[in-house]
C-alpha cells in the first residue's frame, strides 16, 4: 500500500503503560509521528477514570495499553472498556505474545496488538490502520 505520510492529527490516543521509560519512548514516537492528542496513564484505574470522565469518549479515539501491569492488567482495562464501549479501538502492547492472553483478549474483542519492542514504522502502520477504521466509520455514518 502507498506509504503516504499521513498526518495523524485526528488521532486521539490514550497510552496506558506502567513502565516510565517505555512510556516516554512511546510518547516520543507518537509526537514524532505527528500525533498531537496524547493522554497517558501509568495504571489502568486512572485510564478508566479518564475514559469515564465527562467527555472521555470524545477525548480519546484509540487506546494503547500495556498487557502486563500490576494491580489492573491490560485485560481488566479492556473488559471494563468493553462493558460500555464495544467499538473503541484498543491495541494491546504485549511483550511475549503468549497464546493464552491473546485468546483471552480476543474474547473481549481486542482490536489489535503491538509487539514489544516495536519500531516507529510499526507504530505508524498501526495508527494508519486505526485512521482508516475511523475514516470508514465516518464515511459510513455520513
Amino acid at each position: 500500500m502507498s506509504a503516504s505520510q499521513k498526518s495523524f492529527d485526528r488521532i486521539k490516543v490514550l497510552v496506558v503503560e506502567d513502565d516510565q521509560n517505555t512510556m516516554l519512548l512511546i510518547k516520543r514516537m507518537l509526537l514524532d509521528l505527528g500525533v498531537v492528542n496524547i493522554f497517558t496513564s501509568d495504571n489502568g484505574a486512572d485510564a478508566l477514570h479518564l475514559l469515564g470522565s465527562f467527555d472521555g469518549q470524545d477525548l480519546v479515539n484509540v487506546v494503547l495499553c500495556d498487557w502486563k501491569m500490576p494491580h489492573m492488567t491490560g485485560l481488566d482495562v479492556l473488559k471494563q472498556i468493553r462493558t460500555c464501549d464495544p467499538d473503541m479501538p484498543f491495541l494491546m502492547i504485549t511483550g511475549n505474545a503468549d497464546v493464552d492472553s491473546v485468546i483471552e483478549a480476543k474474547a473481549y474483542s481486542v482490536t489489535g496488538y503491538i509487539k514489544k519492542p516495536f519500531s516507529m514504522e510499526v507504530l505508524r502502520k498501526k495508527l494508519r490502520i486505526v485512521q482508516r477504521m475511523l475514516d470508514a466509520k465516518e464515511s459510513n455514518a455520513a
Binding site: 500500500m1 464495544p86 467499538d87 479501538p89 480476543k106 474483542s109 482490536t111 489489535g112 502502520k125 494508519r128 490502520i129 486505526v130 482508516r132 477504521m133 470508514a136 466509520k137 459510513n140
Partner: peptide
Amino acid sequence: TGGFWALEIDEDYSGTIDVLLTDVIMPGMS
C-alpha cells in the same frame, strides 16, 4: 478475526486479493 487484522493484511500483503469475504456485524468495525 476482525477489521483491524484484515486491514493489517491489506497493508502487508502486496499481492492481489481477489475476494473479500466478510461477516457484516463485528465489534469495532463492521
